[in-house]
């Protein structure tokens, strides 16, 4: 019963990212199940954000293939055919298939419909909360405004599209309890609200995959609980798959359906949260070596050194 194996939305194969001599991620494989909340965890510097940046196109991977299939899982045959064709994306057998490693960052958001948030919040601070959510619907509005020409004349079609965009934004503001602050600048919101707004903004892109880089960082326990509820509703209500990087283990264990653990750029565990939590390699890498064992080792070392001394 593992959706990430049966029906992967995104499959990452052999992802390697080198920065000069430093290999941040090496030969990394993972699958993101359709309709799952997948957590990517690991100690600081393990290469989680690098994987994120490769998926969302902000880095061009040194090696590897990142195949994303809308609607339902693509066959290996189709993915190979697309890889050989040299194209970035194609519609094969009625489903849209994307090779993310070949696409530019904005194309990944606009065409492959992968939206993301950032570790250090990147809202448009000088624009209002509502404007932030409207900018996220740029491509749909751009089409409705006839690449600005119809928009200049303010045609009914453009007006309807703008009204629909505002309605969508209002819907999201109600869900994240920010409707009262719609006309305030985003930069004036408290930190926790900014985090939620950034998630709502990413959701306004109308994604199939939402990538969240440490969404719970800096949140108090109450806000963390709200976040957990929001992530669940995004999965269940909107049917959007979520991939998140997170250090807050309580959040990870509560919401995720699937956990992937990275350490020093390599995958060390992959499975359901319960399995991963009990994996000795994860405990060793992520939580450090057991305290007691460490103390015993240190004591025996001291005893050995003391015995050697004349």
């Amino acid at each position: 019963m593992s959706r990430w194996l049966d029906d992967p939305l995104l499959s990452v194969e052999g992802l390697t990212m080198r920065f000069g001599g430093l290999t941040a991620v090496s030969d990394f494989h993972m699958r993101v199940g359709r309709g799952d909340i997948t957590a990517l965890i690991g100690p600081n510097g393990a290469g989680k954000t690098t994987v994120f940046n490769c998926i969302t196109g902000f880095y061009k991977p040194t090696q590897g293939r990142l195949a994303l299939a809308h609607a339902d899982a693509a066959s290996t045959h189709d993915v190979d055919a697309l890889t050989r064709s040299g194209r970035r994306f194609a519609s094969m057998g009625g489903r849209d298939l994307f090779l993310l490693e070949r696409m530019a960052d904005y194309e990944i958001a606009a065409r492959a419909r992968v939206a993301r948030t950032f570790q250090n919040i990147r809202l448009f601070a000088g624009m209002t909360v509502l404007e932030n959510l409207i900018v996220a619907q740029h491509n749909a509005l751009m089409r409705a405004s006839g690449l600005t020409f119809f928009g200049l004349l303010n045609t009914p079609g453009h007006q309807r599209a703008e009204a629909a965009a505002v309605a969508r934004a209002v819907g999201w503001l109600e869900r994240i309890n920010l409707i009262g602050r719609a006309d305030d600048p985003a930069g004036a919101l408290p930190y926790g609200d900014q985090r939620r707004l950034e998630i709502a903004r990413a959701m306004c892109v109308d994604p199939v995959l939402l990538c969240l880089d440490e969404p719970a960082a800096g949140l108090n326990p109450r806000e963390s609980a709200q976040l957990t509820a929001l992530l669940r509703s995004i999965r269940d209500h909107d049917g959007v798959s979520v991939l998140l990087i997170e250090h807050d283990m309580s959040v990870v264990m509560q919401v995720s359906d699937h956990v992937v653990v990275l350490d020093y750029g390599r995958k060390i565990a992959d499975g359901a949260p319960q399995e991963v939590r009990e994996d000795p390699r994860v405990i060793a890498a992520y939580l450090g070596v057991d305290d007691e064992a460490e103390v015993i080792a240190a004591e025996s070392e001291i005893a050995r050194l003391a015995g050697e001394a004349p």
Binding site: T56, G57, F58, D105, Y106, E107, A109, A110, A115, R116, T117, F118, R122, L123, F124, A125, G126, M127, E131, V135, A136, H138, N139, R201, A202, V205
Partner: peptide, 15 residues
């Protein structure tokens, strides 16, 4: 204006 505010965020939204 969004570009003036944050270019990276713009790209992440498909602009």
């Amino acid at each position: 204006e969004a570009l003036r505010e944050d270019e990276i965020a713009c790209r992440s939204l498909g602009v």
